[in-house]
Protein backbone atom coordinates (compact mmCIF):
# COMPACT_ATOMS: atom_id res chain seq x y z
CA UNK A 1 0.00 0.00 0.00
CA UNK A 2 2.83 2.31 0.94
CA UNK A 3 4.57 1.53 -2.28
CA UNK A 4 1.55 2.30 -4.40
CA UNK A 5 1.25 5.58 -2.57
CA UNK A 6 4.82 6.38 -3.47
CA UNK A 7 4.03 5.42 -7.04
CA UNK A 8 1.05 7.69 -7.12
CA UNK A 9 2.98 10.59 -5.67
CA UNK A 10 5.75 10.08 -8.18
CA UNK A 11 3.25 9.99 -10.98
CA UNK A 12 1.46 13.04 -9.73
CA UNK A 13 4.67 14.99 -9.66
CA UNK A 14 5.33 13.84 -13.22
CA UNK A 15 1.99 15.15 -14.32
CA UNK A 16 2.68 18.36 -12.43
CA UNK A 17 5.73 18.82 -14.64
CA UNK A 18 3.51 17.93 -17.54
CA UNK A 19 1.41 20.89 -16.72
CA UNK A 20 4.40 23.19 -17.06
CA UNK A 21 3.34 25.30 -19.96
CA UNK A 22 4.39 28.76 -20.96
CA UNK A 23 2.56 31.15 -23.23
CA UNK A 24 2.45 34.58 -24.80
CA UNK A 25 -0.19 36.66 -26.52
CA UNK A 26 2.19 39.42 -27.47
CA UNK A 27 4.95 37.68 -29.38
CA UNK A 28 6.88 39.54 -32.03
CA UNK A 29 7.06 37.99 -35.47
CA UNK A 30 8.63 40.02 -38.23
CA UNK A 31 9.54 39.33 -41.80
CA UNK A 32 12.00 40.92 -44.14
CA UNK A 33 12.13 40.95 -47.90
CA UNK A 34 15.37 42.37 -49.22
CA UNK A 35 16.02 43.07 -52.86
CA UNK A 36 18.29 45.59 -54.53
CA UNK A 37 15.21 47.66 -55.41
CA UNK A 38 13.19 47.53 -52.26
CA UNK A 39 13.44 46.58 -48.64
CA UNK A 40 10.18 45.51 -47.11
CA UNK A 41 9.61 44.67 -43.48
CA UNK A 42 6.54 44.06 -41.41
CA UNK A 43 6.04 43.46 -37.73
CA UNK A 44 3.41 41.67 -35.78
CA UNK A 45 3.31 42.12 -32.02
CA UNK A 46 0.27 40.00 -31.37
CA UNK A 47 1.52 36.50 -32.04
CA UNK A 48 0.23 33.86 -29.67
CA UNK A 49 2.26 30.86 -28.64
CA UNK A 50 2.13 28.04 -26.12
CA UNK A 51 5.05 25.81 -25.29
CA UNK A 52 4.99 22.66 -23.22
CA UNK A 53 8.35 22.39 -21.47
CA UNK A 54 8.00 18.72 -20.63
CA UNK A 55 6.94 17.36 -23.97
CA UNK A 56 8.82 19.97 -25.98
CA UNK A 57 5.77 20.72 -28.07
CA UNK A 58 5.13 24.24 -29.25
CA UNK A 59 2.48 26.08 -31.18
CA UNK A 60 2.31 29.51 -32.71
CA UNK A 61 -0.49 31.42 -34.36
CA UNK A 62 -0.45 34.86 -35.88
CA UNK A 63 -3.15 37.01 -37.47
CA UNK A 64 -2.05 38.06 -40.94
CA UNK A 65 -3.97 41.33 -40.73
CA UNK A 66 -2.00 42.32 -37.63
CA UNK A 67 1.24 42.66 -39.60
CA UNK A 68 2.15 46.32 -39.74
CA UNK A 69 4.01 47.84 -42.64
CA UNK A 70 5.53 51.25 -42.99
CA UNK A 71 3.54 51.84 -46.18
CA UNK A 72 -0.23 51.56 -45.99
CA UNK A 73 -0.51 50.42 -49.60
CA UNK A 74 1.97 47.60 -49.04
CA UNK A 75 -0.10 46.41 -46.11
CA UNK A 76 -3.21 46.50 -48.28
CA UNK A 77 -1.55 44.58 -51.10
CA UNK A 78 -0.04 42.11 -48.64
CA UNK A 79 -3.49 41.26 -47.32
CA UNK A 80 -5.41 41.62 -50.54
CA UNK A 81 -3.13 40.23 -53.23
CA UNK A 82 -0.51 38.05 -51.62
CA UNK A 83 -1.78 36.52 -48.38
CA UNK A 84 -5.52 36.74 -49.12
CA UNK A 85 -6.07 37.24 -45.42
CA UNK A 86 -9.86 37.15 -45.68
CA UNK A 87 -9.55 33.56 -46.87
CA UNK A 88 -6.52 32.62 -44.77
CA UNK A 89 -6.64 34.81 -41.67
CA UNK A 90 -3.90 33.02 -39.72
CA UNK A 91 -0.46 31.55 -40.12
CA UNK A 92 0.39 28.78 -37.68
CA UNK A 93 3.30 26.63 -36.60
CA UNK A 94 2.98 23.36 -34.75
CA UNK A 95 6.18 21.67 -33.81
CA UNK A 96 8.45 20.03 -31.35
CA UNK A 97 11.86 20.57 -29.78
CA UNK A 98 14.06 17.70 -30.95
CA UNK A 99 16.81 18.02 -28.38
CA UNK A 100 14.74 18.66 -25.28
CA UNK A 101 17.23 16.89 -23.02
CA UNK A 102 19.90 19.49 -23.88
CA UNK A 103 17.81 22.28 -22.46
CA UNK A 104 17.52 22.90 -18.77
CA UNK A 105 14.69 25.34 -18.25
CA UNK A 106 15.55 25.50 -14.58
CA UNK A 107 19.04 26.85 -15.10
CA UNK A 108 20.01 30.25 -16.47
CA UNK A 109 21.66 30.26 -19.84
CA UNK A 110 21.26 30.22 -23.61
CA UNK A 111 20.24 26.95 -25.17
CA UNK A 112 20.10 26.11 -28.82
CA UNK A 113 17.02 24.15 -29.73
CA UNK A 114 16.48 22.08 -32.83
CA UNK A 115 12.90 22.54 -33.90
CA UNK A 116 10.88 20.55 -36.34
CA UNK A 117 7.28 21.03 -37.28
CA UNK A 118 4.62 22.15 -39.66
CA UNK A 119 4.34 25.74 -40.82
CA UNK A 120 1.05 26.82 -42.37
CA UNK A 121 0.96 30.03 -44.37
CA UNK A 122 -1.65 31.04 -46.96
CA UNK A 123 -3.43 27.73 -46.42
CA UNK A 124 -0.36 25.68 -47.39
CA UNK A 125 1.35 23.45 -44.83
CA UNK A 126 5.03 22.59 -45.11
CA UNK A 127 7.44 20.70 -42.89
CA UNK A 128 10.24 22.88 -41.69
CA UNK A 129 13.31 22.41 -39.57
CA UNK A 130 15.11 25.25 -37.92
CA UNK A 131 17.02 26.20 -34.84
CA UNK A 132 16.03 28.58 -32.13
CA UNK A 133 17.53 29.93 -28.96
CA UNK A 134 15.97 29.67 -25.54
CA UNK A 135 17.17 32.14 -23.00
CA UNK A 136 16.49 31.29 -19.39
CA UNK A 137 17.15 34.02 -16.89
CA UNK A 138 15.97 33.96 -13.30
CA UNK A 139 12.94 31.88 -14.13
CA UNK A 140 11.98 33.89 -17.24
CA UNK A 141 12.02 32.11 -20.55
CA UNK A 142 12.36 33.84 -23.89
CA UNK A 143 12.79 32.35 -27.30
CA UNK A 144 14.04 33.56 -30.63
CA UNK A 145 14.54 32.12 -34.04
CA UNK A 146 15.44 33.23 -37.53
CA UNK A 147 14.64 31.23 -40.61
CA UNK A 148 13.87 31.66 -44.27
CA UNK A 149 10.88 30.56 -46.26
CA UNK A 150 10.39 30.48 -50.00
CA UNK A 151 7.40 32.53 -50.99
CA UNK A 152 6.60 30.14 -53.84
CA UNK A 153 6.43 27.17 -51.42
CA UNK A 154 3.26 28.61 -49.94
CA UNK A 155 1.42 29.22 -53.18
CA UNK A 156 1.99 32.97 -53.07
CA UNK A 157 2.46 34.34 -56.54
CA UNK A 158 4.60 37.37 -57.21
CA UNK A 159 3.54 39.09 -60.42
CA UNK A 160 6.21 39.81 -63.01
CA UNK A 161 5.96 43.59 -62.66
CA UNK A 162 7.16 43.48 -59.07
CA UNK A 163 9.38 40.42 -59.27
CA UNK A 164 12.44 42.59 -58.62
CA UNK A 165 10.79 44.32 -55.67
CA UNK A 166 9.71 41.30 -53.66
CA UNK A 167 12.26 38.73 -52.53
CA UNK A 168 11.74 35.08 -53.46
CA UNK A 169 12.99 34.11 -50.04
CA UNK A 170 11.68 35.95 -47.02
CA UNK A 171 13.45 36.06 -43.66
CA UNK A 172 11.26 35.48 -40.64
CA UNK A 173 12.30 36.54 -37.16
CA UNK A 174 10.56 35.33 -34.04
CA UNK A 175 11.06 36.89 -30.61
CA UNK A 176 8.95 35.73 -27.72
CA UNK A 177 8.93 36.45 -24.01
CA UNK A 178 7.05 33.62 -22.39
CA UNK A 179 4.95 33.74 -19.27
CA UNK A 180 3.93 30.81 -17.16
CA UNK A 181 0.52 29.44 -17.98
CA UNK A 182 -1.27 28.90 -14.70
CA UNK A 183 -4.22 26.67 -14.05
Amino acid sequence: MKQSLVFMLALLSVSAIHAQKYFTKAGNIAFFSDTALEKIEAHNYKATSVIDLTSGQMEFAVLIKAFQFEKALMQEHFNENYMESDKFPKATFKGEIQNLSDINFKKDGDYTAKIKGKLTIHGVTKDIETTGTFNVKSGKISASSVFNVLVADYGIKIPTVVKDNVAKEVKIEVNIDYEELKG
Binding site: M1, Q3, M8, L11, S15, H18, F23, T48, S55
Partner: peptide
Protein backbone atom coordinates in the same frame (compact mmCIF):
# COMPACT_ATOMS: atom_id res chain seq x y z
CA UNK B 1 -0.09 -3.17 -4.33
CA UNK B 2 2.61 -3.12 -7.03
CA UNK B 3 0.06 -4.45 -9.46
CA UNK B 4 -2.28 -1.66 -8.49
CA UNK B 5 0.56 0.80 -8.81
CA UNK B 6 1.41 -0.41 -12.30
CA UNK B 7 -2.20 -0.15 -13.28
CA UNK B 8 -2.36 3.38 -11.97
CA UNK B 9 0.84 4.18 -13.75
CA UNK B 10 -0.58 2.95 -17.03
CA UNK B 11 -3.77 4.87 -16.51
CA UNK B 12 -1.96 8.08 -15.71
CA UNK B 13 0.50 7.82 -18.57
CA UNK B 14 -2.44 7.26 -20.84
CA UNK B 15 -3.94 10.44 -19.46
CA UNK B 16 -0.78 12.43 -20.04
CA UNK B 17 -0.51 10.98 -23.53
CA UNK B 18 -3.95 12.35 -24.21
CA UNK B 19 -2.92 15.65 -22.66
CA UNK B 20 0.14 15.86 -24.88
CA UNK B 21 -1.94 15.62 -27.99
CA UNK B 22 -4.28 18.43 -27.14
CA UNK B 23 -4.26 21.69 -29.01
CA UNK B 24 -1.86 23.80 -26.97
CA UNK B 25 -3.15 27.12 -28.24
CA UNK B 26 -6.68 26.31 -27.16
CA UNK B 27 -5.37 26.66 -23.59
CA UNK B 28 -5.26 30.40 -24.18
Amino acid sequence: SIKRGVLLCLLLSLCSAVFAQEDLLSLL
